[in-house]
Design a protein around this nucleic acid. Sequence first.
DNA 1: CCTTGTGTTCTCCG
DNA 2: CCGGAGAACACAAG
Length: 298
Amino acid sequence: MPELPEVETIRRDLAESIVGSEIVAVKILFLKTAKNDAAFFVKALINHKIEDIGRTGKLLSLKIKQKKGETENLYLLVHLKMTGQLILTSKSKKIVGGHSLNEHSFESSVGGELPNRHTRAIIEFKNGDKLFFNDLRKFGYLKIVDELEFKKIIVAGYGPEPLSPNLSVKYLTAKLKNKKKNIKAFLLDQKMIAGLGNIYVDESLFLAKIKPMRLAGSLKLIEIKSLYLAINKIIKKAIANRGTTFNNYVDSSGRKGNFSRLLSVYGRGKLPCLKCKKALVKTKLAGRGTHYCDYCQK
DNA sequence: CCTTGTGTTCTCCG
DNA sequence: CCGGAGAACACAAG
């Protein structure tokens, strides 16, 4: 499940590899993956270079360099949702980003069999590099938008980035005030904070010592401060560790993300809490599997 | 049955 | 009855 740190890792890897590269071929293998008219989609990309790669929350935005005579900035948006991958292959080495569901699909991806049965689109570059968009569950998408629509999507759908100054104790205090939903649902809401998903929400709440079912509006200032610091610390550390390999994420050198071994509660079921040694609790909240310590979190 | 990110739809409440 | 908030569902496949 790629969340902010995983998507950021992919962004950084791709930025080093394909910015400045020219697209020479575009293949859509599953029509619904590309949200535009197929002919427009291909035409907008082909014979164009990638100028820059951005990220908002879990959404990647590849800026398409204008050609002479073109007046409109276009962006290729990529959302991986739960099982999307972006895998770049080149003749000399394989550069991989994204999540595989299991060892088997990882092997089939990296072992040289691309495209595979989950490949939904392929973008080929002049230098021979190929970018594969794989997505087992077909939730992810590629979409080309102009500057206006891009801005609309960002403004309407995304709150501040966790590591930006726009996310502050002051901002959180204002947004949490009188909120009647639980803090877990609040943190999962991309309009409140961009980029947190199930893993980092559970981890942040554990570090902040706050129970996930607490009503958002019930947090005291000292708890809001603690939550703010926890989110900051967790996201920074996860990016530094190139994300969480819960399944089989690997980076451009073929290494796995290192944050999985640093998880405190996510995926640890009823194992002993790392702090108090009592059994962790796994339940369902906001429609999601939820992990916490009933003793350490208040 | 379980897994989850997000867009859409439904329901509730003041 | 309206608006908004929040919950629930839809999507998809292994």
